[in-house]
Design a protein around this nucleic acid. Structure first.
Ligand SMILES: [Zn+2]
Ligand SMILES: [Zn+2]
Ligand SMILES: [Zn+2]
Ligand SMILES: [Zn+2]
Lengths: 132, 132
DNA sequence: TACACAATGTTATATTATAACAATTAATTA
DNA sequence: TAATTAATTGTTATAATATAACATTGTGTA
């Protein structure tokens, strides 16, 4: 079977919902909201999420257990992610900084370990919250 | 109240256990193992973990929901963490790379956001697992 | 068509984490 | 030292996140 081009029914439903959202969504919040579309069980959500993460359409924000659509054409595969997270308003956005991503992709430590993936999360206060 | 110098009883018990471990430990695994010391409930573990993370004695590996002792004198406060994670043997170690940590600490994006913390996790195959 | 694999449906359960409230211990300061 | 305040502990219950196991259905390929 060739590499999948299109999403399956459940994958599409769940991706559409995440894509429309302005903030990262939690699995059970997604479940609650797509029940009208016929998705009834957590596992149906988690399976779709797993696949969407795998193919890079969405990313998991590990520190929040939440999922966000990829808006970065540079990371069609989800092996190199950088996020900016506001600790006050919980706004999350994907950072698209070529210099930084190159730096990280090329990073080598002294242990001989071979890296094929990384996830970086920056925390702080966004401009709005800082002003308050 | 001044900044705490010494750990409380529960904090010490749980820190000792994590410190002796060679791999990151999960909260309920810790709970199971310290029950003989009189710690009976999840909340007792989570409270100690929260405090230990806050003061930088341990770190949470977000992608694994597990905790590891800090072995890096550079990050007595847990606001700047970099980990190396083997996806096969699950070995985790803290990376102490001054150049990289400086680069990240000084990182600024174009949104005017002010960062005071970051967490970076690299994934791949360690030397051992690569050889197999 | 026959095969292999991906995706779905369903029920139950495992794992991770917090709420709420009462009691106790330790540091501060008057 | 006594009163005050903050940190820590103990305890029960429950919330939130995630996976196991198994049967079935869809989909692309040979
Ligand atoms: Zn992305
Ligand atoms: Zn904000
Ligand atoms: Zn550390
Ligand atoms: Zn390994």
């Amino acid at each position: 079977m060739q590499k999948q081009e299109s999403l399956s029914k459940n994958q599409q439903i769940i991706f559409d919902f995440i894509e429309k959202a302005k903030e990262p969504l939690k699995a059970y919040s997604i479940l609650f909201n797509v029940q009208k579309k016929g998705i009834k069980a957590p596992l149906q959500v988690y399976r779709a999420l797993d696949k969407l993460v795998e193919i890079g359409k969405i990313h998991k924000i590990e520190s929040r257990n939440a999922f966000i659509a990829c808006k970065n054409s540079n990371c069609e595969v989800s092996n190199a992610t950088i996020f900016s997270i506001c600790n006050k308003c919980e706004n999350v956005s994907e950072i698209n900084n070529l210099k930084l991503s190159k730096y990280l992709t090329n990073f080598e430590d002294d242990t001989g370990m071979q890296y094929n993936k990384y996830n970086l999360e920056f925390f702080g206060l966004c401009k709005k919250c800082k002003a308050k």
